[in-house]
Design a protein around this nucleic acid. Structure first.
Lengths: 374, 374
DNA sequence: ATGAAAGCGCTAACAC
DNA sequence: GTGTTAGCGCTTTCAT
């Protein structure tokens, strides 16, 4: 029963990967107890420098890597951050994921990424999986909070970050994107060029952020005394396909707008595509403005004028917001809202509307084919 | 000392998230031992159905989720698969990641994604992090094996999947992409249209796959009696920026090629951009062919003719290859190589070269502006 | 400052 | 068929 050196070798060990070295080998090799190894690894100041040296050397020699699972088990913290996006294939998100990951890793966290694909079943399973892997917190960057998702998460009472809107609960932080200012700048840019008939292709309207952008558009138009007729505001899906479909509906109108603003860049790229297919020239015949400023926007044909929402800022705020909720003495533990600025980036998909005086002058002054504002 | 009900409440428990319920609560509530709960959860057939029912009910009532960390610790398997890509922001990868994730999750695995960004330091840390989280296997989908990365991984002797090439070791599986056939079809498509002067913009040549694609191009050209002059093969970076730079070099040549083939779609999109900027028309003046067939390719202006490398196939093979190495009695445990087919997808960026008879006839027959092969 | 030992949540031997 | 228990690798008391 109480055999000091058990003849029955442990069962699980045989199943483990060959390369794996445990804290015990290190302790043995350094001639100390496993507690000392643990302290050394965790940089507890009280360890004798000489012992610490021996421990580090042993670690080096055997190639020891602390087992995170075991650490998590005892500490109750996994040092993993959940990151939920709606669609990883939407180019905005990889950029966000990349920034988020860089920051998280720099702070010693790992990232558990998942995409909902707008599918409640999938989302449900995603949450469950994150809970089982006991992430320390979750950033929900879907830009459209699915209500029951929030519910599940909130119930478990752990640190959460949302974009745009979220319940006002102690563990929850919200990243407020300043859609108003960015959209306003876009509208004013178009108006300044002389556009009066500006259409807007929204995102899917079950998303709060899509609604927020549309509302910002309507408000910005009103501010300068303009009202878009109902048929000039069409619902899209935040995808290229949605942009194409939206533009086609606009094209079917008897009265074409002279400019189209889009709820995101992918939609704008779809619009560009639809316009190309129907041989309408951008920006000579119609101006196009996007939103997000994804990397691809500069490579659109023509390069897209757009409203930048810095995913660097967004990612930074998300990671900080999470840390604020997880680490008891984080400096911004009390901050509940984080403001994300936006700004206009003018490229070549916008110009004076056709037939206006500036456009005519411009045409007279330049070489034939390279239209557009430089 | 041996107090049956310890007055000292366990230390770690206080630190844990409130919502977390352990196997013990379930056992207590169902009036069974924790072993029975474990058996029930793991669907061991021998459990009494009546007890099982009570256990499931208790699980439901308390919202129990088995703790994966603890499971991993005892079983020696984490049910996590590492997935290493070079750049998550390159649109090819999110598509691959998505497929990979879907398949992995369907098999009960979680995915630990990491991108190397072509940075050895970052890569090193990535491997270490994956090892610490004890992933069960790693798929290296960088399309350019960094030698020391392989070394590190191979040392630990765990299941590995590479693309294109990898050491012939027991735990390693290789996904062989059939570049030859795809590139050949692209070249023959161009040649069939009448092109004789075809340039090629490669990927970064430290990548095996980039070299393989270039070699396939040279070989395919030779097969039909064509030889591209050295200045018609320029090195790119598999990015839009690289495509622009490459095309600019081509444009500086006294003798322009009539068609450009690219090592990937992003390069081709860059080429399209450069051509647009310099007011060259695609495909009327110059034809462009890509490689990969990312989703974006259909929305390029004009829609891109390209060689499809199915990331669905790739992802499926990667997951299966990993499972074959991890699960002792997987049906394809012995398979060491997996062939990934490629095929040509003709869209509108390719046409007869300018001035050839077919091109003239075509122009005579069609409405002014919408050139290209339909 | 260091070591012994308890215990994190779970699985798998082993005993009944 | 079910319960008891050792032990996965680690951190953290507690005693020395």
């Amino acid at each position: 029963m109480a055999s000091p050196v058990s003849p029955t070798r442990n069962h699980a060990a045989d199943r483990r990967r060959p390369g794996a070295v445990s804290i015990r080998e290190v302790a043995q090799r350094a001639g100390v107890s496993i507690a000392t190894v643990s302290r050394t690894v965790n940089r507890i100041p009280s360890v004798n420098p000489e012992l610490a040296r021996r421990v580090w050397q042993a670690i080096d020699e055997v190639g020891y890597l602390p087992n995170t699972q075991a650490r998590a088990l005892v500490s109750g913290r996994s040092r993993m951050l959940g990151l939920i996006v709606s669609e990883i294939t939407n180019p905005f998100f990889p950029e966000l994921v990349q920034e988020f990951e860089n920051l998280a890793v720099a702070q010693g966290y790992e990232v558990f990424i998942g995409s909902t694909n707008y599918d409640p079943v999938r989302t449900e399973s995603l949450i469950r999986r994150m809970l089982q892997r006991s992430v320390d917190g979750v950033a929900v960057m879907t830009f459209g909070i699915e209500e029951d998702l929030v519910q599940k998460l909130v119930e478990r009472e752990f640190p959460l970050v949302f974009v745009d809107a979220g319940p006002d609960l102690p563990n929850i932080r919200v990243l407020k994107v300043d859609y108003g200012e960015g959209i306003r700048q876009g509208v004013q840019h178009l108006a300044a060029l002389g556009h009066r008939s500006i259409a807007f292709i929204t995102g899917p309207l079950y998303m709060r952020s899509a609604v927020a952008r549309r509302d910002a558009f309507v408000k910005s138009m009103a501010e300068i005394g303009l009202t878009a007729p109902a048929e000039h505001i069409v619902e899209g899906t935040h995808t290229m396909e949605g942009g194409i479909a939206g533009m086609e509906r606009l094209l079917a109108l008897t009265e074409l707008p002279t400019a189209v603003m889009c709820s995101n860049d992918m939609t704008a790229i779809g619009v560009l595509h639809a316009l190309f297919r129907t041989t309408h020239k951008v920006p000579e015949e119609i101006s196009v403005v996007g939103f997000d400023d994804i990397h691809l926007a500069q490579f659109a044909l023509p390069p897209l004028t757009t409203v930048q929402m810095s995913c660097k800022d967004l990612a930074a705020a998300a990671v900080e917001g999470l840390r604020a909720g997880i680490e008891p003495d984080h400096s911004r533990a009390a901050t509940k809202q984080w403001r994300i600025p936006t700004r206009l980036v003018v490229r070549q998909s916008t110009a004076f509307p056709r037939g206006t005086l500036p456009a005519l002058m411009q045409n007279a002054l330049r070489v034939p084919r390279s239209g557009g504002v430089k």
